[in-house]
Computed example of a mutant assay.
Amino acid sequence: MSVLAWIAVGSLAAWGWLLLGQGFFWRTDQRLPRREAPPDWPDVAVVVPARDEAEVLPVSLPSLLAQDYPGRAEIVLVDDGSTDGTGELARALSGRYGGLPLRVVRPGEPEPGWTGKLWALRHGIELASAREPEYLLLTDADIAHKPDSLRELVAAARTHNLDLVSQMARLRVASAWERLVVPAFVYFFSQLYPFRWVNRPEARTAAAAGGCVLLRAETAERAGVPDAIRQAVIDDVSLARAVQRAGGSLWLGLAERVDSVRPYPRLADLWRMVSRSAYAQLRHSPLLLGGTVVGLALVYLAPPVTLCAGVAAHDAAAGWAGGLAWAVMTGTYLPMLRHYRQPLLLAPLLPFTALLYLLMTVDSAVQHYRGRGAAWKGRTYARPQAAPDR
């Protein structure tokens, strides 16, 4: 066979493995497990780190204040050095809508060795712990919850004795770029961390979605979080690994009651979201970066390239293998597009989206070596840590 045909066959073999051997990552049926109302509802503290979130807070915070929770719950919003009146707006929204009690605190600038979000979570958890809640709900300021969200999370945790229950919020898909990039973001995440593997007893794979994490307070203390992961930019996976190391049980799935309201209307907005932490996930390793580029090229770019080149060169083996690989890839992406209620005709465009992610990852490395590191909300972390393995 020609070199082109071997590349196409290699890509097809990779997709055969991904289809059957990677935890069925492409399926979207991992939702909150069967649950029953507990005989007594535990106390919960909702901790919301917020930095310059005045744009999204009028949508997200009222949804937390309106939680229909049978037990005692309160909200601690940590105003992380905002300059847009986030704290004052939060108090005004609480006065207007009522509901769960709200406390707003400002912890000051992070100490050396801390990322801003984890510094805010540390202060929020410390303040909330004074009232000894059984669970902590860690949720981002751009996340809106249905009125029964907290109740269902706690019921799932109690029913299955889970230490951490996390849901991947349904991200916004309104603009053309969001439709092209956002469902693929969740698809790639689930490929790296198959939800079924995370949810198995005695699982080795650990992951969480940082926008919505219900965490048993006792387990958080035993795991030493957030102090143990204070430098992590990819804090959700780091948190899950710390909980797992402490003997905690995890569950991760797709959300039905939790939505992100943060807009990413332009490609530049989505680019920053991905590139700020992509190289940190590769542990700032040029070797891992090179392997990632080659892997993405073989798995996602080779199928359409070998199909077209094979047809042009009358190379039947390359054309057939490339076409079959592209078909398998397209088929695995359809469930995620259905979950996001997007046109299924977007599925064959996944190679183009993968190319964008490849370029975002390379740009993340370039920014790192230029000394810019991960930049977010006016803060730059020159050398942020990846999620630690141990």
Rank of each mutant, 00 (worst) to 15 (best):
Leu102His: 05
Gly108Ala: 04
Glu202Met: 08
Tyr279Leu: 05
Pro335Leu: 01
Val3Cys: 06
Ala386Gln: 09
Ala354Glu: 01
Leu289Ala: 04
Leu298Cys: 07
Met329Ala: 11
Gly371Leu: 12
Pro49Met: 02
Gly224Thr: 01
Gly291Met: 13
Glu256Lys: 04
Ala316Pro: 10
Ala297Ser: 03
Ala317Cys: 09
Glu152Arg: 14
Gln191Arg: 08
Arg35Asn: 05
Gly210Thr: 02
Glu88Leu: 09
Leu359Pro: 03
Gly23Leu: 05
Gln244Ser: 14
Gly331Pro: 10
Val76Thr: 03
Asp148Glu: 12
His339Tyr: 13
Val56Lys: 02
Ala73Lys: 03
Ala14Leu: 14
Tyr381Phe: 15
Pro351Ile: 02
Arg196Ala: 13
Glu256Trp: 02
Leu215Ile: 04
Glu221Met: 13
Arg379Asp: 10
Leu346Trp: 00
Tyr300Trp: 02
Thr380Tyr: 11
Val328His: 10
Ser166Trp: 01
Ser275Phe: 03
Trp6Met: 14
Ala176Phe: 14
Ala174Trp: 08
Arg91Gln: 11
Asn161Gln: 09
Ala207Asp: 00
Arg106Trp: 05
Leu164Val: 03
Ile143Phe: 00
Asp68Tyr: 09
Ser82Thr: 01
Gln167Asp: 01
Ile234Lys: 13
Ala232Leu: 07
Lys117Leu: 10
Ser129Phe: 08
Gly108Met: 03
Ala313Asp: 13
Trp376Thr: 14
Arg106Ser: 11
Ala375Tyr: 13
